[in-house]
Amino acid sequence: MTPERERKLVPVRRVVTGHDESGRSTVLSDEFSPHTMTFPGVPDYGQTDLWRTRVPADNTTSGESCENPTMAPPDGGVVFRVVQIPPDHLFLADFDRTAMFGGLPDGKHAVGDHEVRNATMHRTRSVDFAVVLDGEVHAVLEDGEVLLRRGDTLIQRGTLHGWSNRTDSNCQIAFVLVDAGPSDAGEEQQP
């Protein structure tokens, strides 16, 4: 019998460059990002924020940009993160949608008359660029789903979506979320 694996987020190394006092390029920090957020009751489902900025970005400051991880990118900005999605069978039966998505502005976890095909379905006001780093996951939409494997990409454009990991291993996905206006579905999105 194999012992149950420890359920936690895998640390993500973050190297940040900048300039020293003489203007030469240098490494400012090299560490595991401490900016993590797990979802209530699921210690291995969550995100590690790596960088947040408004656009255009300001490269003249050296301060920390990720002190308060949230799901949405900053207004007029972007967030770069890695999301870890555990196998469905480890959490989905007891998943609390309100605890996970209640922090989204305007309660976008409440999807109105839309069919919730998967308890993780939600909507954000952003264009999300995703690259699967490890494992596989189904991107679940109102009308269908698509299996994504290591190296596959997804451009999620403000749609109602969720994630389904039907394997026995975690899936790691790198995301860049870009703040956006309302979707072409004509629905009002979060501010």
Rank of each mutant, 00 (worst) to 15 (best):
D184C: 09
E115P: 08
P56S: 03
T61I: 10
R123S: 07
G23F: 08
V82S: 04
T167F: 03
V42N: 04
D106T: 03
V16G: 05
S29L: 03
D96N: 14
T124H: 03
V27S: 09
V42S: 02
L9D: 14
M37A: 07
G102K: 09
V82Y: 11
P73D: 11
R149N: 08
L28D: 08
A99D: 14
A72R: 08
S33Y: 05
M100W: 08
A93C: 09
D113R: 07
Y45V: 08
A180T: 14
S126P: 09
T167P: 00
G186C: 09
S126R: 02
V15L: 10
T48S: 10
R149A: 14
V111C: 06
V137Y: 01
G103W: 11
C66M: 13
V83I: 14
L9P: 00
V178I: 06
G63K: 12
P182D: 02
H89E: 10
R117E: 03
L147F: 04
P40K: 02
S62M: 06
V10K: 15
A130V: 01
H138Q: 11
V111H: 02
G77I: 09
F101C: 02
G135C: 05
D58K: 13
V137W: 03
V10S: 13
H114M: 01
E21F: 03
V140S: 12
T70V: 15
V83T: 14
H35W: 15
T17G: 14
G158F: 08
V132W: 06
V137G: 09
